[in-house]
Design a binder for these strands. Structure first.
Lengths: 209, 209
DNA sequence: TACGTTATTATATGGTAGTTCAATAAGGAA
DNA sequence: TTCCTTATTGAACTACCATATAATAACGTA
């Protein structure tokens, strides 16, 4: 009885991939493991099983398991940033800000798998120098994007705000809502989380919707 | 050269403790390990070394390492709740709410060790049924306390608010501010975090300070 | 077709994980 | 003082961890 893939002797045992492609595959496998079992599920054995490759590959393409974790973090942030930075580039400042908030609580990011990953990563940043380095780069960009969006709305409305401080509040609230919802999903919906952001911002910026 | 403790043959090799006392000691050792290295530092070997006991004790007093982790979570929440519930019981509603917020960002709770512990625990809740059970009990109490404090202020001022929703916003913001500060301490101070909470609440409840 | 580069596999290794359990001994009770 | 309960120890055991490395083989190139 043949397995799903026939294993006749004339077909290759494995397919070689370029370093770039294989790295990407391993990162995605790492993300899947993190989503499934948190940081304790992020092991060489499980990731390689997920990616259907042998154990040696992670060490070969990333120097170590920590190197892969850093790459995972980079990729996760990259996904969020690309959506934020493409969110309504050629529209009004208000629509852009609303678009960013909507994106944050869209199914793509506001789901249990993603939040499990973020929580696993946050818990390791303080103990993993490679992770901290990646974080510093990406977080600065993230906060700058939010600050810019807030400032644009304020300027368009002739308001003077401490955009850095408001950005910090918004970022904190978004992260906190994610944590609450992840831990106790019944008490909160994506819609309610979105609403909470507007309840924070509208007293500062005026009506946004 | 004798060690710090003399080891003459007539003194006991170890001191027996009541189950309650020993459990408490192991929980504190577990907290110390979690604070130091996050969830990856929460191992039998390290905790027993921290508590200066042999490896068999954790299994004896808690059924497993997960049992200890659940007890740690219970203890951590208990510390927060006792402070919240004792915060200004016989004073004005406003002073009580301000007292709770001040307590949240006091040195006792708003410090790197504590936040490292919370992040480690949050990351495990979804994957550890024992932890989830403890969480449900304590979190409900926590949220109820906050909701009560908010409602008391609103009632005293003749305001109608959705206390449940506002409580959820406040709890989220507090958690999120903790995460931000933990990950990037330079961008935020305890004072600024406290200020952020008032910026959220005062548009809803009026001046609180 | 034959060659050479190197991605990939597969095994070995040393370390550490959690749990079990028989032996030990502390310390209260009789 | 002697006995008894049981907290505590410490070693054994199995499983899994990350990493190093030699052998293998895919596949572009000549």
């Amino acid at each position: 009885m043949p397995k799903t893939k026939k294993k006749t002797s004339d077909q290759p045992k494995f397919a070689r991939q370029s370093a770039e492609v294989r790295r990407e595959m391993l990162v995605e496998a790492g993300i899947a493991c993190l989503a499934k079992d948190g940081i304790l599920g992020f092991t060489i054995d499980r990731i390689c099983a997920e990616a259907r490759v042998s154990r040696g590959l992670i060490t070969h393409h990333f120097k170590s398991i920590d190197g892969l974790l850093a790459a995972v973090y980079d990729t996760m942030y990259g996904k969020v940033l690309s959506v934020i930075e493409e969110s309504g580039v050629s529209t009004t400042p208000e629509a852009r800000l609303v678009g960013i908030i909507d994106a944050m609580f869209s199914r793509e990011f506001f789901n249990r798998e993603s939040l499990n990953i973020w929580l696993a990563l946050w818990g390791e940043i303080a103990n993993n120098p490679a992770l901290l380095k990646v974080h510093r780069k990406q977080y600065a960009r993230y906060r700058a994007d939010i600050e810019r969006a807030l400032l644009d709305v304020a300027n368009a409305r002739g308001l003077t705000i401490d955009a850095g401080f408001v950005a910090m509040m918004l970022v904190s609230l978004v992260d906190g809502l994610g944590v609450e919802w992840f831990i106790e999903p019944k008490l909160l919906s994506a819609k309610a989380a979105r609403e909470a952001c507007f309840r924070l911002l509208e007293p500062i910026l005026g009506p946004l919707r």
